[in-house]
Amino acid sequence: MRVRPVPFDPTLSAVLDALPRASNPELSLADVPKLREAATAFPAPPIAEVIGDREIDAEELTVPGPDGAPDLAVTVLRPRRLLAPAPGLYNMHGGGMISGHRHQDAARLADLVEELGAVAVSVEYRLAPEHPDPAPVEDCYAGLVWMARGAAELGVDPGRVVVMGGSAGGGLA
């Protein structure tokens, strides 16, 4: 008998039982360094390379973290000739909350900055298992608060901020 993680309508049982099962072994804490190493096998290109000759400025900043926690590193991408407050994109990276970094989404964010005329902020949050829940959530929230409070300085319209992320970043969003 297969154990289901949540109760489902009994009429779905036949469909669920017919689905293929993952054959991946269960992960352990000992696997985390290997996962992080594998994630760096194809490193993100440097920000300057991602931007190339586009009319985008990049800035690396350190901003206040949550109370009692370390400060946060953020990357800000903005249109070079920003004439009025722009939409803001606040991005959290993927990686299962155990790997990844804020630069891995730089190409996608640069495309959005260029296409939408938006200002993007990508936050570096603490990773598990060294920093379990709620550390990533608290870090991401602290970065968002910083962005909202500094909206005018960043060139962001505080009424038009989108919180986004892929995979684990989507969960954090």
Rank of each mutant, 00 (worst) to 15 (best):
L61Q: 11
P20Q: 03
H131A: 14
G171E: 13
A142C: 06
M147G: 00
R108I: 01
R21M: 01
G94L: 04
D71W: 04
V161R: 04
L154H: 04
A86W: 00
G65V: 02
F8M: 10
I51G: 07
R102T: 05
E55L: 15
A39K: 08
A86L: 03
P158R: 12
E130W: 02
K34I: 03
R160K: 14
A120Y: 04
P46V: 02
P79N: 13
G165H: 10
A38F: 09
I98S: 07
P20Y: 04
P158G: 10
A22W: 05
A73G: 15
R54A: 13
E115I: 01
L116K: 00
D17G: 09
Y90C: 03
S28P: 07
A38E: 10
S13A: 15
M97R: 06
M97H: 00
A39M: 14
E124Y: 05
D111C: 05
G96E: 11
R21K: 10
P25R: 09
G166P: 10
V74M: 11
A151Q: 03
E55F: 15
F8K: 05
E130R: 07
L154D: 00
I56N: 00
I51T: 10
G96Q: 08
G155E: 03
F42L: 12
Y90V: 11
V76E: 12
V50L: 09
G165K: 06
L127K: 08
A152S: 09
G95C: 08
G143H: 01
G100W: 08
V162W: 08
V3I: 10
A14V: 09
N91H: 07
V3Q: 01
E114H: 13
M92R: 11
G100H: 07
S23W: 12
L82M: 13
E49I: 07
L172M: 13
I47W: 02
P43E: 12
D57S: 04
D53M: 13
P43H: 12
R81K: 15
A44E: 00
P70E: 04
T11P: 05
A152T: 14
A106H: 01
G155M: 00
S13L: 15
D71P: 02
H101A: 14
V6M: 07
A151H: 02
D139K: 13
D57C: 06
N91D: 11
A128D: 09
L12M: 10
E114V: 03
A69L: 03
A173G: 15
S28A: 03
D9H: 14
G165E: 04
P85N: 07
E153P: 00
E114S: 12
E153Y: 02
L127Q: 06
P20K: 04
D133L: 14
D31V: 09
D139N: 08
P85L: 04
A118K: 02
A84Q: 12
D111A: 15
V76W: 07
R4N: 09
E115Y: 06
S23F: 10
A18I: 14
V74E: 06
A30R: 12
A152E: 15
R80W: 10
G155D: 00
E115R: 12
A128R: 08
V113R: 00
M1Q: 06
V113E: 02
L27N: 04
Q104K: 05
A128K: 06
C140T: 14
H103L: 09
P129K: 05
I47A: 11
G68M: 14
A173H: 13
V161Y: 05
R78G: 01
G100L: 11
